[in-house]
């Protein structure tokens, strides 16, 4: 009897926490569908009285949100593609080649992870300026595509792949590139999905770097556009919420579809030793 009561209380407590974590998204969605002014009523509404899509229409027809969406998408896909290639190659080398300096080189990379990105921000900005890559997608992609975390992730996974597979292919006369392309990549599929997911979400959600590199308005990504929209439309709660929905929903959908892989990434990254 006492146990039953305790269990009910426990589940109610958990439900309360879940409500707290989900409620801001619920309110965001509801407010985005309210007619102008309804979201700033007092007392606040938990549900729209009448539904309207006007803010979404407004965002896409007048405020260029389609373009920002496309910028975010192309950038995230671009970073992901390059990051998969570059980091899987390096991860393969660290996991499967024996060469001088391998251990100290890898250890050095891992300890460099403590260097905050803000330290390199100013010189990289100047470098991109010299290269003429400011206000271009490549200005965002190039500095972010190689990631120490990505190399680490791939290496950890490939260390579990038996060497005999590679040896056998070598005896059959396969070159290293063929081994990488035909054996390693297919075997590493799960961890590649994990890395792709982390990279895509990281790029989609990133703010500081696109803010600095992409200052031309037609190149804004969604987070940058959202933050600049706030300047003019801070009173248009419903419009801002519609913009937030458009920003958040794609990344949520991608996460929900592939959450299994995301969790695996946290396990590999978190239980390192």
């Amino acid at each position: 009897m006492k146990n039953k009561l305790w269990s009910i209380l426990f589940h109610l407590g958990m439900l309360l926490v879940a409500v707290i974590t989900v409620f801001p998204f619920w309110w965001m969605l509801c407010a985005s569908l309210m007619p102008s002014g309804e979201a700033s009523d007092f007392p606040p509404r938990f549900f729209p009285e009448t539904f309207t899509a006007e803010h979404y229409i407004n965002l896409f027809s007048r405020l260029n949100l389609g373009r920002y969406f496309l910028n975010s998408l192309l950038l995230a896909l671009g970073v992901t593609l390059f990051s998969l290639l570059v980091n899987s190659m390096a991860g393969f080398a660290f996991a499967k080649f024996r060469f001088r300096g391998r251990t100290p080189l890898f250890a050095g990379l891992i300890s460099a992870m403590i260097i905050p990105g803000q330290v390199t921000m100013l010189p990289v900005f100047l470098l991109l300026n010299k290269m003429g890559l400011l206000n271009s997608y490549f200005g965002v992609i190039l500095p972010t595509m190689a990631s120490i975390f990505g190399i680490f992730l791939i290496r950890q996974y490939l260390q579990g792949v038996p060497d005999s597979l590679i040896e056998a292919a070598r005896i059959d006369g396969a070159g290293e590139w063929l081994i990488y392309w035909k054996i390693i990549l297919p075997l590493a599929k799960p961890v590649l999905v994990t890395l792709a997911l982390f990279t895509f979400m990281g790029s989609w959600n990133d703010f500081l770097w696109p803010l600095i590199v992409l200052t031309r308005e037609d190149l804004y990504t969604l987070p940058v556009a959202l933050s600049s929209l706030l300047g003019e439309h801070v009173q248009d709660v419903e419009l801002m919420m519609a913009g937030s929905v458009v920003t958040v929903v794609p990344v949520l959908v991608v996460f929900l579809a592939l959450q299994k892989y995301y969790l695996q990434g946290i396990m590999i990254g978190g239980v390192k030793e």
Binding site: P24, M201, G243
Partner: peptide
């Protein structure tokens, strides 16, 4: 859920909350 969502969007939402 909050972890995977875009920080800027979430900050905008909380600004109104």
């Amino acid at each position: 859920l909050p972890v995977v969502t875009t920080l800027v969007a979430v900050a905008v939402v909380w600004r109104y909350l």
